[in-house]
Simulated scan of single mutants.
Amino acid sequence: MTDTTPTAQLSAAGVSIWLDDLSRERIKTGGLQKLIAEKNVVGVTTNPTIFATALSKGEAYDEQVRQLAAAGLDVTDAVFEITTDDVAEASDIFAEVFESSNGVDGRVSIEVEPGLAHDAAGTITEAKKLAAKVDKPNVLIKIPATVEGLEAITETIAAGISVNVTLIFSLQRYREVINAYLTGLEKAKAAGIDLAGIQSVASFFVSRVDTEIDKRLTAIGTDEALALKSKAGIANARLAYQVYEETFASERAKALVAAGANEQRPLWASTGVKDPSLPDTLYVTELVAPNTVNTMPEKTLDATFDHGVITGDTVTGNYDDANAVLNAIDALGISYDEVTELLEKEGVDKFIVSWNELLDTVTKALEAAK
């Protein structure tokens, strides 16, 4: 690995590259280790869709499924065992990265059951259960940024468990997420928990914002509307970084950092382009800023490694332009609040569908193994 590859340049610019994918095949074949060694990957994110896809392909899970079937486990417990095993193994693979980065990177995320997205108490219970089962210092528990999720984020952080907050679309919800994190840290501090061991990232979704707003701009169809296509997602994310900078410069946040706490880093999620006419590295090269994470599907990672052009920080200094984009979209009658609320709802719904597909796949596998 050289320092001249685009992924090395991206890392040097302060962006941690995480892979948005995990499978047992990738673990067992050494594919994950290869990405660490060659493409600067320093973490992994998972979700129900990723596990559903992994389990539906190949034979990597067959032996464990037979063992679980023989033990008489039901499908929910079987899914819990399978997914936590993958995350624990991946956590071991990233242990060296975790140590060398002082716990900042080398992180592997696992999501609470998406059906709990509007159940704060259920999410807190599940988060603690997942953390205990994986039992690795570098695991992150993914909690969606629903209204109910905010309480769960606070209480999970307060228990000393590191959290990846997912499905953030709006700037206001992002402010609420940071507040939930800081409140959790304050509770943890009061309980005597070492704040240095708690990490968190806030996953701000990018391409899905463009997909929804571009659809509405196309329907309007004027030159002014069409000129704004594929600009909202990046503008929104850049303004999220401004929120991050301002909030962690507050006296409240600085007091916690002085007590040993870590800043909650912004994470760019949904960074694979959905529109084939767009540059395939768009949501990477246009969102370069210090102390951020970009979690990429492998296709986007490969594109970035192959031909990404990294020109340094492309976020700070662009806030006025970003505001102008969102204001112009609003002036056309497209409601930012309506779009972001819809995307949050759709995000939860999509993960529930994937979760049900995962349960269905494992149910069939368990029955076939009997």
Rank of each mutant, 00 (worst) to 15 (best):
T2L: 07
D3A: 15
P6C: 01
A8Y: 09
A12D: 07
S16W: 11
I17R: 03
W18I: 00
K34S: 14
E38Y: 08
V41H: 04
V44F: 01
T45R: 05
N47Y: 01
I50R: 10
A60L: 00
E63G: 09
R66E: 06
A69F: 11
A71K: 14
G72E: 00
D74F: 00
T76C: 12
D77W: 06
F80G: 10
F80Y: 13
I82T: 10
E89H: 04
A90R: 05
S91V: 06
S91T: 03
F98H: 13
E99A: 15
E99K: 15
G103K: 03
D105G: 01
A117H: 04
E126D: 10
E126Y: 02
A127F: 03
A132R: 07
D135Q: 06
P137H: 07
K142N: 07
A159H: 07
I161P: 11
V163R: 02
T166R: 10
T166M: 02
Q172K: 14
Q172R: 15
V177Y: 01
E186N: 05
K187G: 04
A190S: 11
L195A: 05
G197T: 09
I198S: 09
F205Q: 09
D210E: 05
L217Y: 02
T218M: 01
E224M: 06
A225Q: 02
L226S: 03
L226D: 02
K231Y: 01
A235M: 05
Q242L: 13
T247F: 06
S250W: 12
A255V: 09
A255G: 07
A259F: 00
N262R: 14
N262E: 07
E263N: 15
Q264S: 00
R265C: 02
W268Y: 06
T271E: 08
G272E: 01
V273N: 02
V273Q: 12
D280V: 06
Y283I: 01
V284L: 02
T285K: 10
N294L: 11
E298F: 15
F305E: 15
V309S: 13
I310V: 08
N318K: 14
D320V: 08
A322S: 15
S335N: 13
L342P: 11
K350R: 14
I352D: 09
V353W: 03
L358Y: 14
L359R: 13
K364M: 03
A365N: 10
